[in-house]
């Protein structure tokens, strides 16, 4: 799983997908996840990274992360 090559993320949380011309906004943890995905990652590693860093119940994080990743897929800004 990896961010598509033509997707730019700025520190402000602005995402521009040059493939489609769409733009998006992110909250801080969203920015962090997308930055992580600049390198290819598997979901389990991403989960472990966030779980270590944030104070959150595992099942909540798992649910939220799956939901977020499925949205990224739906918007077409990450590759499997």
């Amino acid at each position: 799983m990896k961010l598509k090559s033509n997707v730019a993320i700025s520190d402000s949380g602005f995402v521009f997908d040059a493939n489609t011309g769409e733009s998006y906004s992110l909250n801080p943890i969203g920015i962090e996840i997308l930055n992580e995905l600049k390198q290819s990652k598997i979901t389990e590693d991403l989960f472990a990274y966030l779980n270590n860093k944030y104070e959150v119940a595992e099942f909540t994080l798992e649910q939220n992360l799956m939901d977020f990743l499925s949205q990224l897929k739906q918007y077409g800004i990450i590759d499997e």
């Binding site: 969203g30 996840i33 944030y54 992360l65 977020f68």
Partner: peptide
């Protein structure tokens, strides 16, 4: 090390 406060990740289309 203590963990950071969590908020679910959000992406909104503009």
């Amino acid at each position: 090390m203590s963990k950071l406060a969590y908020e679910r990740p959000i992406i909104n289309k503009i």
